[in-house]
Write a protein that binds this DNA or RNA. Sequence first.
DNA 1: CGATTTTGACCAGCGC
DNA 2: GCGCTGGTCAAAATCG
Length: 394
Amino acid sequence: MEDQHFQQSRNANTDLEEELENILQSLAREEPLESYTPAMTASDAVHQCMLSSGALWTLPFDLSPPAISCPATSLSALRLDLQKPIISDLSTAARAETINQQAFYLDYPGTTGSFQHLLHLPEIERELLAHFPRVGELRYESELKLLSSSALNSTGISLAADLSNKERLPSRRGPGIVLTSILSELSPEEGSPIVSPTANSSFSSSLTDEAHADHEESSHTVAVTAASGDSTAARAKRKSPARVPEEDLPSITTHEKQQSKTAKKGKKRIREHRYAIQTRSEKDILEDGYKWRKYGQKAVKNSPYPRSYYRCTYAKCMVKKTVERSSQDPGMVITTYEGVHIHPSPATIKNSSDTTLNSSRAMYTHFPTPIKLLPPCNSFDLATQIGGQHCHVP
DNA sequence: CGATTTTGACCAGCGC
DNA sequence: GCGCTGGTCAAAATCG
């Protein structure tokens, strides 16, 4: 019985290993790998990688060990989206913290089923290689550039304290490509993405329940607190329309304005989780998998480029984003996201309908539409982007 | 014709 | 209080 199971598992592994071998061969030929979906395995776990070049890998991580390899020239960053974070020590904040000196680690508060990591430094590479011993090589050409606090302030974004003093990291690869900033406004006290370390660093295991619970708890605290503050302000504002029809002015303006002012007095606008992404792109609007409706545009001080305001079109989803071009570098698009989606990405749903995956799983097994990036204009100037967040509806 | 974008007005917060 | 700025609203215009 056990032998039979072992044999089946072995056969599945062989099939998948063949597919992975094909990928490696494809990569060796430097053909762009747009998408790879492995055969279903006994495990529900799927490990996806999307390259900043737009290529998407879906690797079964219950197989040991999937290969990750990529032509050095085509991979500027590797994003792992772990439905079940099997690289558990990478999925924990303890790990994140220790690598934080050299790597930027991004996690999304409020996200309950998906974890995203931007991997770009040797320590993480070694970590991956340790887990994927058969990997020929995991390469990337990028490094992280964290903006200084003052630079951030000029974009209206403040930086978590523990990141504010970080300068651009030295490259170990000589003139490489810089992966520009991904920033979080969350301070550690009010909901750090950091979660407690898990003792279990087994390759095939999920993040331990304890660690997972910690993560969720801290995430939710932030999401709820911030969301309630913001929605209160938003409600107060909606009660008092920005522009009241002329004929109604005498009847409602005074009273409601007063009410609104009273309601808001002493209440600072509480921002939800915010993070900004700089992307080098010709297009102002980058596909991130979500649908947005523009609701405003403003001229930005000291910049020839306006800032556009977008809101997620999904009902009751309060996520907003602003998009503007950098005045210093017009090729750079700065996108600031605020809030946490209460729904999966429409792109996720769309993609998953084309697969044989079951629905609960499909929710997390595809990235939003890959983002096409322009080639770097100089050796320190490639930006890449992480797409939208995924989270379960509470 | 519904969805989306544009655009000027409005409002709150902040510094002076 | 005033002016400036960022953010939002909502009618009108435009798009698909």
